[in-house]
């Protein structure tokens, strides 16, 4: 239940293939720009409303007027609840008293009784600034975050089980595309590849959505079709 195990669990699901976002952190984060003040707080808890309230004063102070992007993902199964603070691309251990905001973050973790093993908790993510480009693809079945794939790895395919069948993703040179789907329409295959943070691929029959994590750099909020 130490930080490492949370990070491993944070890399979550679909077996080992998804352990990359956190365990492969060093490689991933070096690609982030560090010239602007960006940070993110990931929190796995079963008290999301209280967590948001507790974090608000701290977030307000740290964001210094910048927009805070908030996302919330339900997780299935047993997860280690904890708090991860990443600033300027570096993981900050709040248990290290010398780290910035360590006291505040430790206080919040205490109030939320973290770390702890939690069943079906919620992952909350607050991000300011964001990375310059997408570093990972997040895979959802309905509202559930069921997996995460790093875009850094060499060419690879991943099979994802949906509600009616399976789809196969291919990851190559920072782009993700669906290369096989069990459904008849095959609409998701025609959607092509996604590269930019914020872009999505959707398989409606299987209720699967693949979204590239990171801030949306395209400047487009939605597509009409």
């Amino acid at each position: 239940m130490n930080r490492r195990s949370f990070l491993r669990n944070g890399g979550m699901l679909l077996g080992g293939m998804l352990a990359t976002q956190f365990t492969g952190r060093a490689a991933v984060l070096r690609t982030c720009r560090s010239d602007n003040d960006n940070f993110s707080i990931d929190l796995v808890t079963n008290r999301p409303a209280e967590a948001s309230e507790l974090l608000h004063p701290l977030l307000s102070a740290m964001a210094a007027g910048k927009r805070i992007v908030y996302r919330e993902f339900p997780l299935r199964g047993e997860h280690t609840g904890d708090l991860v603070f990443i600033r300027q691309g570096r993981l900050i251990d709040y248990r290290d008293g010398a780290a910035g905001y360590a006291d505040e973050l430790a206080g919040i973790a205490r109030r939320l009784e973290l770390p702890a093993t939690l069943l079906n908790p919620t992952l909350l993510r607050f991000a300011v600034g964001g990375g310059a480009s997408a570093t990972s693809a997040e895979i959802f079945q309905g509202p559930l975050l069921i997996g995460r794939v790093s875009l850094d790895e060499p060419r690879k395919t991943h099979r994802v089980e949906g509600s009616r069948g399976a789809i196969t993703l291919s990851v190559s040179e920072g782009a993700v595309r669906i290369v096989d789907a069990s459904c008849r329409h095959q609409t998701c295959l025609k959607m092509g590849a996604i590269r930019q943070a914020g872009e999505s691929l959707v398989c409606i029959p299987n209720r699967i959505r693949i979204t590239l994590a990171g801030s949306n750099e395209t400047g487009i909020d939605g597509i009409t079709h």
């Binding site: 964001a63 910048k66 805070i68 992007v69 919330e72 959707v202 409606i204």
Partner: peptide
Amino acid sequence: GQHAYELEVSKYLMGTLVD
């Protein structure tokens, strides 16, 4: 700029993804 949050929620409804 005064600590505004940006939230996004998606759900499958009406045979499509609503964002």
